[in-house]
Amino acid sequence: MHKFKIFQIIFLIIICFEFTDLNSVNAAKQVLSTGIVEERVKDLTTQIHWYKNLKEAEAVAKTQNKMIFWVQMLGDIDGGT
């Protein structure tokens, strides 16, 4: 009986940890399923060429008279982030 109560307390602590996660978004508005994510990432990385070298991007931008959209990110645009 005593062990059961300890188990109950531990379980409650675990539940409290989970639902007081301050670093999780508390009001997510839109969730995309895995299939849609894959499809959109594919569109993003095939319909747009993503340069990895800024100097190279600058040279192309000058010849095409365009601006540069340069993303600094944790991870890869076509892989894990």
């Binding site: 569109d43 993003l44 319909q47 747009i48 060429h49 993503w50 340069y51 990895k52 070298n53 800024l54 190279e56 991007a57 192309v60 931008a61 095409q64 365009k66 601006m67 540069i68 959209f69 340069w70 993303v71 600094q72 990110m73 944790l74 991870g75 890869d76 645009i77």
Partner: peptide, 16 residues
């Protein structure tokens, strides 16, 4: 997406 395709040269770098 359309604006990026039409008007920008795009690139990225990993900042880890």
């Amino acid at each position: 997406f359309s604006d990026l395709k039409d008007n920008f040269i795009c690139g990225y770098t990993d900042i880890k």
